[in-house]
Computed example of a mutant assay.
Amino acid sequence: MIYQNLSIVDSGTIRRLIISREHKLNALDKRSLAELHHAIADSIADKSVRGVILTGAGDKAFVAGADIADFADLDTEQGRTLAREGQNKVFDLIHHASKPFIAAINGYALGGGLELAMACHIRVAVSSAKLGLPEVSLGLIPGYGGTQRLTQLVGRGRALEMILSGDMISAAEALEYGLVNHVVDPSILFSKAMDIANRIASRSSHAVNLAIQAVNAGLDPAQNGYEAEIDAFGQCFGTPDFKEGVAAFLEKRKPNF
């Protein structure tokens, strides 16, 4: 696929996906979502990629929301289809990915942009970032998992305040809420994200995948998270990574996964 709104940069085993619509504050239109779906699926399937950093072009916005022109004329059923396809092809694809996705939030993360960041496993934000779900100001609610993932991350009260008011919060508030993992100076955003990604990449990819599955299972009311963890724990014992990890520990050396 030829990308128009997305740039891809590989650094060793870490891939950076850069949403490149800087003139639109990297707003998500249909083309951007289609390109993200393709690039995310390709990154998950590519065994040489051990982690993915998702960010926006420029220094103003991660993603400032969805491109309103794309859905201004939709009816009820078309709105449902828009949300369902976005969830299935992009947001849930990241959420359930077998390798870590890290959001490097380099500016505004609003609406669909914050939902994109929340779908990632880890979030790092610059100190000047602003985050929010302003959909109610358009007569809408979040449609790409925002009501669910925000509540999981910050709790019901804070999630409702953000969603119902539509107000933005600062990066410092997001850190206090538990919405982001780290807040850093803009000059070290990507080095921080790369450091996290590389540290995870040095671990067993099989164990990382199973750990993500177990954590996600605990958030799914249709699953028993404890049973998912027990099963995943057991699976680890049958892998070469387990044998290498134990051997390295006993031999007092770094494992070679």
Rank of each mutant, 00 (worst) to 15 (best):
N5W: 02
S7Q: 14
S11D: 15
S11V: 03
G12S: 08
G12I: 05
G12D: 05
T13W: 08
A27H: 01
D29Q: 04
H37V: 10
A39D: 01
D42F: 10
V49A: 04
V49W: 06
R50T: 09
R50D: 15
V52L: 02
V52P: 09
I53E: 00
I53A: 03
A57C: 12
D59Q: 10
D59W: 05
A61L: 08
I68Q: 09
I68S: 10
A69D: 09
F71C: 04
A72I: 15
E77W: 12
E77Y: 09
L82H: 05
A83S: 02
A83E: 07
R84H: 05
Q87A: 11
V90T: 08
V90C: 02
D92P: 00
H95W: 14
S98I: 08
F101Q: 13
I105K: 03
L110F: 11
G113R: 05
M118S: 04
M118T: 04
A125M: 15
S127R: 14
A129R: 07
A129N: 11
K130C: 04
L131T: 14
G132W: 15
P134I: 13
P134D: 15
R149G: 03
L150E: 02
L150T: 02
L150F: 05
A159L: 03
M162I: 14
I163R: 03
S165M: 07
S165I: 06
M168K: 11
M168F: 12
I169S: 10
S170L: 04
E173A: 14
V180E: 03
N181P: 09
H182L: 15
V184D: 03
D185L: 13
S187H: 06
I188E: 15
F190M: 12
M194G: 08
I200K: 11
A201M: 10
S202I: 02
R203W: 13
R203Q: 09
S204L: 08
H206S: 12
V208N: 02
N209T: 12
N209F: 06
A214E: 01
A217K: 00
P221N: 07
A222D: 05
N224G: 05
N224M: 04
G225T: 03
G225V: 01
E227P: 00
E227R: 12
A228P: 09
I230A: 13
D241I: 09
F242Q: 01
R253M: 01
K254I: 13
P255A: 07
N256C: 11
